[in-house]
Amino acid sequence: MAVDVAEELKNLKATMSSIEAVVDLDALRGEIKRLNEEAAAPDLWDDQAKAQKVTSRLSYVQGELNRVESLRRRLDDMEVLAELAEAEDDAETRAEVEAELPRVAQAISELEVRTLLSGEYDAREALITIRAEAGGVDAADFAEMLMRMYLRYAERHGYPTEVYDTSYAEEAGIKSATFAVKVPYAYGTLSVEQGTHRLVRISPFDNQGRRQTSFAGVEVVPVVEQTDHIEIPDDELRVDVYRSSGPGGQGVNTTDSAVRLTHLPTGIVVSCQNERSQLQNKASAMAVLQAKLLDRKRQEEQAKIDALKGDTTGSWGNQMRSYVLHPYQMVKDLRTDFETGNTSAVLDGEIDGFVEAAIRWRRKR
């Protein structure tokens, strides 16, 4: 076992070194120094948007550096302990190292996945839209289950989220919902969740207790930044205001604060009704619309590249995961073959294994 531990430590050290090279620790330290200087400026908060961007980026970069450095220390400490256990033939210390090894290996694996996110928009925050598809009331209920799954995933990781719009179905569940995951690399991480999700279960809405298959679609787009220059002329936009509503048509407030934007050339419709002022809802809806138009532009550019390459693989996003609750319990990703029988944990937000496997799969492609 001691030889296996030594070999495993050697492999982990090699992986850690490659991660450190990709992350570029000196560059991170340089950025932290520059951001600290900006954050110390007396006039920083004269521009609140810029101040929040600086402080948010500083917090994120410091966290990234600490994550890599602390993991390196854990690995070095384990190597010292392993050598000590071997030299003194200490069974207790050897057992301690063997118990810690898989935990460190998992942490390094997660960090390695982050280094695979090098796409143009991967570092952005994410906007996620979930829609009920085929399957009637079961599909609407499934769409709401998926929304909860992603919000719980974000909560588990400490990622801030903001729900912009929820369109409730009449009997149960939701027709659609749009929310933001406000952390760097949210887009790169969660973009692999895009596609059609399928649920198989005994329908709680069928009085004959029959098995039903239903579908929900997940769309993930990167949040637009000021440098993206997505111009939307006024004559291409229709703005409707209406009263916000909750489940079953229940009124959330008594003013016409909800906003619906329709982009006439593409037919893209975006709504925002998160109980704020009409002006704020319009600004949020515009940000969502710009993100969707940016993603549309990105997809068109990718389609041209694929056409030049003769890419005939088709969209990897469609029908990407099955959630089977009857006659057996299993969630399986159809692209990576990653699966688990713990369906309740997955629907409670434990999807890290699926996300990591899909990021590695996408990188290989």
Rank of each mutant, 00 (worst) to 15 (best):
K309R: 15
G310W: 05
G310K: 07
G310M: 04
G310T: 06
D311K: 08
D311E: 10
D311G: 01
T312D: 13
T312E: 13
T313A: 14
G314K: 02
S315F: 12
S315I: 06
S315R: 11
W316L: 12
W316H: 13
N318G: 13
N318F: 14
N318R: 14
N318I: 15
Q319N: 15
Q319C: 13
M320L: 11
R321N: 02
R321K: 08
R321A: 07
R321L: 03
S322M: 13
S322H: 15
Y323K: 02
Y323C: 00
Y323M: 01
V324M: 04
V324L: 00
V324Q: 01
L325P: 01
L325R: 10
L325Y: 09
H326C: 04
H326Y: 14
P327W: 00
Q329L: 04
M330Y: 09
M330S: 07
M330A: 12
V331Q: 04
V331T: 05
V331G: 02
V331A: 08
K332W: 03
K332C: 00
D333N: 07
D333M: 04
D333G: 05
D333H: 07
L334A: 07
R335K: 02
R335E: 00
T336H: 10
T336M: 11
T336K: 06
T336P: 14
D337L: 10
D337R: 10
F338K: 10
E339L: 07
T340P: 08
T340A: 06
T340F: 05
T340M: 04
G341L: 05
G341Q: 12
G341S: 14
G341M: 12
G341W: 05
G341N: 14
G341Y: 11
N342I: 04
T343A: 00
T343M: 03
T343C: 03
T343W: 00
A345K: 12
A345Y: 08
L347I: 05
L347Y: 05
D348S: 14
D348Y: 12
E350N: 06
E350Y: 07
E350H: 10
I351F: 01
I351L: 01
D352R: 01
G353N: 12
F354I: 03
F354P: 05
F354H: 02
V355I: 14
E356K: 09
A357I: 05
A357E: 01
A358V: 05
A358W: 03
A358T: 08
I359H: 01
R360S: 09
W361M: 09
R362Q: 12
R362G: 09
K364S: 14
K364N: 06
